[in-house]
Design a protein around this nucleic acid. Structure first.
Lengths: 210, 210
DNA sequence: ACCTGAACACCGTTCAAGT
DNA sequence: ACCTGAACACCGTTCAAGT
């Protein structure tokens, strides 16, 4: 049992990613430094570089963890619109679980391996729903843009406590309050409905090709 | 005329913001350091702090410059839908002029003064169009989320040269190409049309309240 | 062979010394 | 009074010295 040695689990790329996500969730992206992370893991700074090539790679791994939390399941027989709604809700649930980390998802390039592999999962999911893969590929960016943009605003609003009305005049703080109130579950659902119905109508008219 | 002294214009908050935007446009957000910026302006690092309180404040000023580039004008008599389309196109034109800087706009909090004052301009613009200010406030986040999310993807795609297919297998690079192709002017117009029409239908049904 | 401390080239910002 | 260089407390990463 080697008593005296602390029971710290052995370093691995996965463990580093999980600790990084926990750190971002707790203290924000700015606090994620290789040095802080190593200290948190009880390791020397350079030991992390045995498992991971750079800070950027750690962030990519965090994005992969977050995208993996999105569940791709839908009620049977609902077709692609019901599938799109289910994914949108699972995406939002992930964002609200990780409001400080969500900006990493929004900022991730579509070229990064974790994003590409999420796109692959998503395509297979739509194919399994009986939808046209081609239609999915032509239109997913419209729905995804709305979801990502909305959740970026909503997670930001979530993190800003209302006590910040310090140096604001009455009209400004009223406007700020109004803006914060427009990002809500019902607004998300309303936008989702408009786009899903709009895309369905376009596809029915055979105008799905951009 | 004081010959021998270089004809460098005197430092000001505005000049610093403009130089910062130029630097981000040219070399990206990561390159924007107070030290680099001061060197570019031919000043000592600490001289900037006479005009601006922090790096974060400089970034806020850059966001203000970018939001000021969005033109709020619409063809007369078109009502709010025509106004929304005009703003959306002007927003996109700004984003494409500043693909590297756009992430600063997307990442800006709705609480920051430049964003609040842009919201104020926008509200006045819609009011002038004869639209209901209340309906605008209830629904702007849906349209704005789509636009911001889409432009975030499009500006990212714009900056990634296609030569990056290095370590990708054939299927992955094909998927990446597909994803990049879905962010285009016609996709933006399609999404815009779906949302504007959807919001118009909701408002006609009196369901504008979220 | 594997691990990691020291060192390098950067940061943003404080503060006191310079004019 | 105004300006700013030196210094402080950080970064990510390289590299060579340690085991």
């Amino acid at each position: 049992m080697n008593p005296g040695t602390p029971e710290r689990p052995r370093l691995s790329r996965r463990l580093i990613a999980e600790a990084a996500l926990a750190m971002v969730d707790r203290r924000g992206v700015a606090s994620l430094s290789v040095r802080n992370l190593a200290a948190e893991l009880g390791a020397g700074t350079m030991s992390l570089y045995r498992h991971v090539p750079s800070r950027e790679a750690i962030i990519r791994d965090v994005v992969a963890l977050l995208l993996d939390e999105i569940e791709l399941t839908a009620p049977a027989g609902g077709g692609w619109p019901e599938g799109a709604r289910a994914v949108a809700r699972s995406y939002r649930a992930m964002a609200l679980r990780h409001p400080r980390a969500f900006q990493l998802v929004a900022g991730a390039s579509n070229r990064e391996p974790p994003v590409v592999s999420y796109a692959r999962r998503l395509r297979a999911f739509y194919a399994g729903l009986g939808g046209s893969v081609e239609a999915f590929e032509q239109n997913w960016s419209i729905l995804d843009s709305f979801e990502t943009g909305f959740l970026l605003f909503e997670t930001q609003a979530l993190l800003e406590s209302p006590h910040e009305a310090e140096a604001m005049d009455a009209e400004t703080s009223e406007l700020a309050r109004h803006m914060a109130a427009t990002v809500s579950e019902s607004a998300y659902e309303a936008g989702l409905e408009i786009i899903v119905e709009g895309l369905a109508a376009r596809l029915d008219r055979g105008a799905g090709r951009l």
